[in-house]
Write a protein that binds this DNA or RNA. Structure first.
Lengths: 270, 270
DNA sequence: CTTGACCCTCACGTCGCGTGAGGCCGGAGG
DNA sequence: CCTCCGGCCTCACGCGACGTGAGGGTCAAG
């Protein structure tokens, strides 16, 4: 029962004592003093702030309303304006809170979509995938693609696009791809020569269509052409359209690249 | 098919055109340029920013991630660091969003409590009220009090306190009030004179107990004393404790006020 | 040549403090 | 007496993502 460090019967508490009592920082008290929201009625000769019981009363009200998320200006109104519409201000604040919750929930839903896209590469159900991509589609492909390419910049960009695509959009992409592949097959059949304007137009068109997945530079396209030929799965796909299409495609891509000053034999993905 | 105002085939779009296409403000584009997040690759001779197709690509990605709530620094990482853990960043963001939703929901609950307190004055069910305040309690009183005093500073302060009180706390308040009233009755019976130290101590104690509702100045206490005597409801309550207690209470309050330099006949509530 | 729409670069304001920097005050110990 | 340490003071900048002018060039059309 010795003299307590912060006796309640003195006529004022210092900032540190108040800060402990109310659970706010000293800086906050300084700030509220600066802006005139809650000032101590006393100062010691040395300039120390001294908060009286009445000041504590007011500070406590400030803390209460701050915990409700009101801005300092609004709190000032509530504390000082006897005509302040406190219930109105509270309801307005409530409405704002609901709004912000809504926005955050939509934001969370968007994040979930994007995370899903990053993890699965495709946001369609197996049935939707079958309906959109046709019978030759293998639902394991996205997972396999992620295993191979997950973590690359291109996978990230692909996922960004996937997140904003529904069945409709995917159908349009699949249609464009199918249309291009038909055109490639027809051109090869028609004897279009690598390096010819027609071949180069097709190469250009391939880059544009492929941009549905991610932006493709000409160098990357060269690598892609070589992979289409070398990878058994891709080769089988293209040669299934026309025998030799994979090799022919590589040749028209290489020719187009050369025409743009790129050596296809040394071109790298990045 | 005339020349469009923002032809897509020119080699750059100005800030205004980009702003319309992407739905962001011109200032945001300036800002992203300033901080180096997304700069135009071209400028006209006059200094106009010109965004190329590639720039638009990058801008679009910025917009996407900004809509997911990522900070500009994090977006920069995602766009530029090929080793950036994009799914990780997204999940961290998701966790933050959930946290913020939680905080907002708690905040909303607090607001609801406070609004309720402002509107009803008491957050207890009718049964709880009966259990806490005893059989002579009338559940219409809070509503009536709000009709009379709603909108005053004191009602607001009373509501603030009510919002943070449960049945326990109300029981303590009711107990303190009952105890005080017993003491008042006993003192009157014992012939305590208005103006005596004992009477003044009781007046002081009344102010302290009453502070459970809202802070009471001595002037306000004087008005209260007069109302206790004049209002039939209050008078009946106090005279029900002891015949003449309302009038005696007014007299001890008046005397205490006079002893503190207040003229009870001209004292006003505010 | 003028007009009006568009563009530029500063540069301060927002909101509620956090975080030092530099220095004074006050009580305890040597 | 001096010193030390913890607490207090007053500046004053920083944060995050721009909003909002001020003051002044630029461009296409009438």
């Amino acid at each position: 029962m010795g003299n307590m460090p912060d006796a309640a019967d003195t006529d004022g508490l210092t900032v540190g004592q108040v800060s402990k009592r109310l659970g706010v920082t000293v800086r906050a008290l300084h700030h509220w003093d600066e802006v005139g929201l809650a000032r101590p009625s006393l100062r010691t000769a040395a300039g120390y702030r001294l908060y009286t019981a009445g000041d504590l009363e007011r500070l406590h009200r400030v803390v209460v309303y701050r915990e409700l998320g009101l801005g300092l200006d609004r709190i000032r109104d509530v504390l000082e304006d006897p005509a302040a519409d406190v219930p109105g201000a509270l309801r307005a604040q409530r409405a704002q809170v609901d709004e912000r919750i809504d926005r955050l929930q939509r934001l969370g839903a968007g994040l979930d979509r994007m995370i899903d896209a990053q993890e699965h590469g495709l946001l369609l159900t197996t049935e939707q995938q079958a309906a959109v991509f046709g019978p030759q589609w293998n639902p394991d492909w996205p997972a396999r693609a992620r295993q191979l390419y997950g973590g690359t910049t291109q996978w990230t960009q692909y996922a960004e696009r996937s997140a904003s695509r529904g069945p409709e959009e995917w159908r349009a992409v699949a249609e464009a791809v199918a249309c291009l592949e038909r055109a490639l097959g027809d051109a090869m059949d028609a004897g279009v020569e690598p390096g010819s304007p027609e071949a180069n137009r097709l190469v250009e068109r391939h880059r544009e269509v492929f941009a549905s997945y991610f932006p493709l530079t000409r160098r990357m396209q060269v690598c892609l052409g070589r992979m289409y030929e070398a990878d058994p799965g891709f080769a089988a796909h293209y040669d299934g359209i026309r025998a030799g299409l994979a090799a022919w495609f590589r040749r028209i891509v290489d020719a187009d690249a050369r025409a743009h000053g790129i050596d296809p034999d040394t071109a790298s993905w990045r």
